[in-house]
Amino acid sequence: MRPPPLLPSFWDRWSGLRLLDAGLGIWTGLVFLFLYLPILVLVVYSFNDSRLNVVWEGFTLDWYGRLWDNTRIARALKNSLVVAGFTTVLSVVLGTVGAWLLHRYRYRFGSTLQTLIAVPMIMPEIVMGISLLILFTTAGLKLGFFTVIVAHTTFCFPFVLIAVQARLQGMDPALEEAALDLGATPVRAFFLVVVPYLRPAILSGALMAFTLSLDELIVTFFTASAQVATLPLLVFGMAKVGLNPMLNALSALFIVATVAFVLFSEHLRRLGRRAP
């Protein structure tokens, strides 16, 4: 690491730490290449006019067109959107109201409840899937939209709750007090003062819930019937069989949606930080 005496002027600038830093930079670049190259290949080959992935045989939008016409995929997409939609609404209501109540009032067993809320977030998905499957079968419930939405909401709403809680910690209590002093009922104060203040957190929590639900495979695997198969379940089944250019196209669309989601959440996060 000591600079060799022959090239002092050059090597001085490259002390050991700088060399280490350059090495770390190269390593980081390589890791990003590892993370992005497979995804990029997938997107590029979704435009390939060939059934097999190997040779480039020209540009086509055919696979996207077929995706559009495929009734199984269309139905799975519809199922996914229905599940994610209901899950998001339920999660936002449970998460926002829950976070507010836990912030505003002192409950007995409050900390127990707080721990319990974190459990679905960190619990292994497969354990959650089988335990809910056992509950539903024991209760005699038929697997369907209801069971999937309940399962998804259970692991999605804690994310909304935590996001809202984080924002509540920075809230000036005078905000709500002023509304109450001016004669607003607590309910009115909640909807007219607290909710607007929490909007960035609620929105990013909702986005998170929607995405988590849309992507979820393992829990859905145990709680859905064939009739309500969501997109991940269908993709899982198709990918098991082998390569399918339509799947490339579908994946490419999903990747584009994810990039949009990440950029939008980042925007929201910045907005939330700037707001009072």
Binding site: P38, I39, L42, L214, D215, V235, A239, L247, N248, S251
Partner: peptide, 11 residues
């Protein structure tokens, strides 16, 4: 989705 990223490796 990890499913899509896994599929990329299958390809």
């Amino acid at each position: 989705s990890f499913l899509i990223r896994t599929y990329a490796w299958i390809a």
